[in-house]
């Protein structure tokens, strides 16, 4: 390579590097640092602002904050499990049981609802479930119920909504892995007398582990950070942690408190992902693909 060619190659590097660096530095790194900085700032009663641990302190001293936090984390784990349990047989049916000519069609059918706005999907559930909703209408018509049942604003409804909105992000990665599972493995196990449970436990689930892990991480993240579904379907007196953040920032205009909550949420999600990755010995870059 001559000298002038070398310089040209570096130019190419600079052209590619600059916008990418600006994107990550200005929109990811600096804002996260600012979030962390804000979370340690506060005003004392003289109106002077300075360093304080108050914002984190109130999180631990006010039960409502950490209870919401724990509730959000536990429900997110629960939803991830429910989604996994539904997604496994669906993925199995599409990759291993359905007639091959229907496979593509079923995949498209599974994908379509998730291209639709999350708000519209939740709205659909509201129309179905509320007191004057479609399900109550039919239950009354068929004389199964005497009075309409209020199915909204329960934790169960919220979980249903969260499962519904995050389903796809579990099914797609699992299908991706399951497709490459050689049928011969299952046939061989069958010949040797393995039952269905044994085939699932010893072959299918271990083989699909990478897909299960990436699906679980994405679903967990989405559920933990969701705002619309808990807000619109969930109970009025039990909040999701993102609502807590929203209230601090938009309603009480306490940005420092909101920043501390935001950072705690970020910390929690990173921590859980880190633990899961370590436990299963996977790498983040592989999981995201």
């Amino acid at each position: 390579m001559t000298k002038s060619e070398k310089i040209k190659v570096r130019w190419g590097f600079i052209i590619f590097f600059t916008p990418v660096f600006l994107w990550l530095f200005l929109l990811i790194v600096l804002p996260q640092i600012e979030l962390l900085r804000m979370s340690f700032l506060g005003t004392d009663f003289h109106g002077k602002s300075g360093f304080t641990l108050e914002n984190y302190g109130s999180f631990f001293t006010e039960p409502i904050y950490w209870l919401t936090f724990a509730r959000t984390a536990l429900y997110s784990i629960l939803v991830t499990f429910i989604v996994l349990i539904i997604a496994l047989p669906v993925a199995f049916y599409i990759t291993k049981l359905a007639k091959i000519k229907y496979q593509g069609f079923l995949m498209v059918l599974i994908l379509i609802p998730f291209w639709v706005n999350e708000l519209i999907r939740i709205y659909g559930w509201i129309i179905l479930l509320r007191e004057s909703g479609v399900i109550n209408y039919f239950l009354l018509k068929l004389h199964i119920l005497k009075h309409p049942l209020e199915m909204m604003y329960h934790d169960a409804t919220m979980i249903l909504g969260l499962v519904y909105t995050s389903m796809l992000f579990m099914i797609v990665p699992i299908i991706g892995v399951m497709e490459s599972l050689d049928d011969a493995l299952i046939e061989a196990a069958n010949d040797l007398g393995a039952g269905k449970v044994a085939v699932w436990r010893k072959i299918i689930i271990p083989y699909c582990m990478p897909g299960i892990m990436s699906g679980s991480i994405i679903v967990f993240m989405l559920v933990l950070g969701s705002f619309l579904t808990p807000k619109l379907l969930g109970g009025k007196n039990a909040m999701w942690f993102t609502e807590q953040i929203y209230n601090s920032i938009i309603i009480y205009f306490n940005w420092n408190q909101g920043a501390a909550f935001g950072f705690l949420l970020l910390f929690l999600s990173s921590l859980i992902i880190f633990i899961v990755l370590k436990l299963t010995k996977q790498e983040l870059s592989k999981v995201i693909k």
């Binding site: 994405i218 950070g225 705002f227 935001g262 949420l265 970020l266 992902i273």
Partner: peptide, 8 residues
């Protein structure tokens, strides 16, 4: 950005 919640 894939693992930072959108709200954050």
């Amino acid at each position: 950005p894939m693992v930072i919640p959108g709200v954050i």
